[in-house]
Design a protein around this nucleic acid. Sequence first.
DNA 1: TCTCGGCCACCTACCGATCGGTAGGACGAG
DNA 2: CTCGTCCTACCGATCGGTAGGTGGCCGAGA
Lengths: 166, 166
Amino acid sequence: MQEIAEACGLTKAGLYHHIKTKEALLLAIMHYGMDMFEDMVLAKAGDIVDPVARLRECMARNIALVTQDASKEVTIILHEHQTLTGTAAQEINVRKKRYVRFLEAAFREATERGQIRPVDPTLASFSFLGTVLWIYKWYRADGKLTPREVSDGMIDLFFEGLMPRS
Amino acid sequence: MQEIAEACGLTKAGLYHHIKTKEALLLAIMHYGMDMFEDMVLAKAGDIVDPVARLRECMARNIALVTQDASKEVTIILHEHQTLTGTAAQEINVRKKRYVRFLEAAFREATERGQIRPVDPTLASFSFLGTVLWIYKWYRADGKLTPREVSDGMIDLFFEGLMPRS
DNA sequence: TCTCGGCCACCTACCGATCGGTAGGACGAG
DNA sequence: CTCGTCCTACCGATCGGTAGGTGGCCGAGA
């Protein structure tokens, strides 16, 4: 809290004038991160009609978010996934679950349209999320891979698969 | 440290008789987790000749490790990935990187043999790891999915892909 | 066989530093 | 004069860690 206050150009007491507790601040940061996510991913990809195209656009935008635009704001949501307690934890979990339901619906729709093999929508969603969100653990902006290379490569792998097309 | 000592049936001073610092204890716990991982995954799957079969066995054993056998010991390595500092961080990073190199080699070998499409081995490895290791964030033993269902479903998705076989 | 010295595991009691948080006032703007 | 912002100065609790002992076990020597 000391360091956060200094970074805001305040003393600790000055910071506590604006927030009630440390956990309330974390909650506000996470809501801010979820806002950014919804603005930059769901709002842009959510109304694409074709479910596979919707999922591809979602993955591209989500990877961009994690690798560049808002890595700090978003990765804190990912890393501190067990930190909040009580109603604060529930608030964020509700917003997270909306994303999972959104992905599940897209996979289900794609299956029904016959665009993809019949797969468990839940497992497909968590596989999608693992591929995309694990990136925050290993990706470094000063590394060999550009955000674009990661994005294109991951999307190709996830949607086109490993096996040679017969 | 207080709680750990009590769980060991010791006082805090008694615990500190056995370890030097809190960080040294975390390092020891992580080495123990890496030992378990290498015993139960690499040692069992490492010498399978066929690279794709090797990767499939690896994924199955890794998912089993995260969902049942050693979730506590292994997930602490995953979650506290930025906690250690200095040489301790290096020690664990070296062991982690060995696993990444092992996966990369398998993907490269599978590509050279023509068993899979030509893909970037690094991206394929991190996609593999994301799928498998993200599980610790969402999987609950008392949930709907059994470890077996997760394992079978994830392996099918990762290796057979989403698209219908043409 | 007895005993004595040393060692090892572990304890009580405590340390300074830092933690999250607050009381009460200063100060500028309207 | 008041209201909202932000400060100085401080709080009790907890943090990681330690000094200095206590008590039991084990091997060596008489």
